[in-house]
Amino acid sequence: MELYFWIFAAMAIGAGIFTVTARDALPSALGLLTVFISLASLYLHLQAPLVAVFQVTIYAGAILVLVVFVIMLLMTPEDKLAGEQKNLPFRSMGAMLGGVTLILLALGVRGVYCMVGEKALSDGFGAPKLFGSLFFNDFLMHFEVVSVLLLVALIGAVYLSKKNF
């Protein structure tokens, strides 16, 4: 089971590096797709099959298709970003910020192990039945709030893409 983790972790990191370094947006989107798929596999490893299914359907199936659609709409052949390396100080500063954040997060992890003892899993952990009853009992109000949020986002998106905005 350890090999399973290492394979998909390496895949996720490699594809993540590719996502942020790819020159064009479409290869970057394909790298992001690989990240989504490998994370879905890791969710299976973490006894969360339902989350894995949602990862594939919502992220890889809906959000990424939307992104690729927008790439198709906006990326005309003459739309090359001119002078990619122009503001090198800012770029190196940003890379340093990201690197420092990464190191800080990785260092902070060292305290986690003693804080979290692994608990034994109850029967049927991660099963859709249990998930559903938890979701519609404990999180019912949150669910309603999120549905309103999605409605607002839908209306906002339609309004923003009107012809003469």
Partner: peptide, 19 residues
């Protein structure tokens, strides 16, 4: 953490809004 750091690096270094 590594994935989050990569996301930050991409967010502050890239200029393509879609990326």
């Amino acid at each position: 953490s590594i994935l989050f750091g990569l996301g930050i690096i991409g967010f502050v270094t890239r200029r393509n809004a879609i990326i």
